[in-house]
Design a protein around this nucleic acid. Sequence first.
DNA 1: TGATATAGTCACAAAAATTTGACTAATTGA
DNA 2: TCAATTAGTCAAATTTTTGTGACTATATCA
Lengths: 99, 99
Amino acid sequence: MESSELKCPAELLLKQLSGKWKPQIFRLALSEPVRFNTLLRQLEGSNKQSIATALKELEEQGLLDRTVIKLKPLHIEYILSEKGRTMVPIFLQLENLSS
Amino acid sequence: MESSELKCPAELLLKQLSGKWKPQIFRLALSEPVRFNTLLRQLEGSNKQSIATALKELEEQGLLDRTVIKLKPLHIEYILSEKGRTMVPIFLQLENLSS
DNA sequence: TGATATAGTCACAAAAATTTGACTAATTGA
DNA sequence: TCAATTAGTCAAATTTTTGTGACTATATCA
């Protein structure tokens, strides 16, 4: 991602949501928590490394919260954070404008 | 850019505005027509090829209109298109949310 | 005990995006 | 006529992003 010097305010959000898998992951996370292996199966053509990287960045950016669910076979859920939720409306607008 | 298969509606706009120079160019075009050499000087660290590519893509995507001003020393202006103008509000929202 | 599922990491390879530097072509001003 | 400005193009090199394949670690089920 290489953030740092942003020359234009809109670049921040644009960068945080750009990349090959982030938009799809963010979209899935809109309705319910997402998980590593589930995403791997849902997003065809994806791979462990890319999903791991995308999840890590979305977490670092504060859009998703990583929570360990210590039950049965150990689950880790990525859930929309407070900050992530503030981005939902604009994300939906992007969808509307696109279509 | 490599559009084609979009798995998520929001990806279209996200991709059209992503890249190292497009956000800045789009932002400058918000207030007045932009021009090749002017951008080259304004956007420090940029280069002919990148600016040319960004302008061409923004034009192909229908966000900017390329118009030849046949006066004095030959000018070419890139102006926000109708479609480009419909994106102004969401672009400004991205800016607000970023800051 | 061995197989399967969870959620990853690591080094390297391949692909895509960006930059460099040389070159083109039309027009203007001295 | 020569130099400068306009707006680019092209091929090759570099950088960034994404993908591959092997491997780790914990827990469950048969």
